[in-house]
Amino acid sequence: MTRDIALGQFIPGKGIIHRMDARVKILLLITYIVLIFCAFNFVSLGIVTASVIAIILISDIPVKMYLKSLKVIIVIILITSILNIFYGSGDPLVQFGIFKITLEGIYRAIFVTVRIICLIFISSCLTFTTSPTDLTDAIERLMKPLKIFHIKVHEIAMMMTIALRFVPTLLEETDKIMSAQKARGADMESGGMIKKIKAMTPVLIPLFVSAFRRAYELAVAMECRCYQGGDGRTRMKVLKINKLDVACILVTVLFLVGVILCNIFFAAKI
């Protein structure tokens, strides 16, 4: 049941995007997020959407997985787009009482929906194609300059790695404990909100106990291997930027320029 959540799950593969450097991927993701919000008219939004679709197709991840990642936030998308329909100013196309639908509202709703979907797809692409360890490694490297401000970059990255590493483990554990309590006749499906929350105690307590036990064991194991923080530590996998990364950066920059030009030369819709 908990396994159905597709948001942020690494899927091993050998596609172009899998082979890219994780640092480059993060930076390009940020560029894309900027791009998505920079697209002010239909032409530039079209370009961005097309490129996102292209990325999805070359990512060597089944399209189904992307659609699954939408499932979690479909409600949010619906609510924001419906709100936006009623929000526009200008001449109303249809009017019921204080609610009116305008052309601008409809445009807004389309923009918001397409933007959110693009955002989800492009960030899912990063988490689908990058293993959690590579991801935190890259974040650590990208945040290195912050060391000047005495921010403990390595420790933060290590905590993130560990947290990410244990998400699937804890999900699995939750599943197992839930099954065990269901086997003892626990009723977790029926009843109102309060009854359901109460019914979770037999799951949450063992879960916390085991999370603390795991944390303790992990700390001991790390100490046994003489872990002492980031100073003087070398890496097994050194991140390297290669031709592929350079090519991808160039393509993205091209898109950025394209979108900016579109914004200038075509009239802004919103």
Partner: peptide
Amino acid sequence: FQYPEYQLF
């Protein structure tokens, strides 16, 4: 279950 001691609460 396997390792049922983890279900005690």
